[in-house]
């Protein structure tokens, strides 16, 4: 199971939890599985098949170079982050 950190503004959609354990071998798979368990969260993450703009990901504190396609391993921590162009994080990192 990987652990997914939930941004503060989305925590009300997952009963206030900060971190959630979920199965998944890529960021996309983990988020889809999370969205199945928490459909309201899923509605905020996805616009159809596309990730909503303004989100980026870090794996164990480092930006995921391949975004949604990034492979993850058991015990990895996935962070959903607000995207910031030209600074900390690129909005393009969810490609």
């Amino acid at each position: 199971m990987v652990k997914v950190w939930i941004p503060a503004l989305l925590r009300p959609l997952v009963n206030g939890q900060v971190k959630l354990a979920v199965e998944g071998s890529t960021v996309r798979e983990a988020l889809h599985n999370l969205s199945t368990t928490y459909p309201n969260l899923g509605a905020r993450l996805w616009d159809g098949q596309h990730l909503r703009p303004g989100l980026a990901f870090a794996i164990n504190g480092q930006i995921a170079p391949l975004g949604l396609s990034q492979t993850i391993n058991t015990d990895d921590e996935v962070e959903i982050l607000p995207a910031i162009g030209g600074g900390t994080l690129s909005p393009a990192s969810h490609r």
Partner: peptide, 12 residues
């Protein structure tokens, strides 16, 4: 190194 910031980043 390792400081977790409020935006979720962990410093290298």
């Amino acid at each position: 190194l390792g400081t977790r910031l409020a935006n979720g980043n962990v410093l290298p």
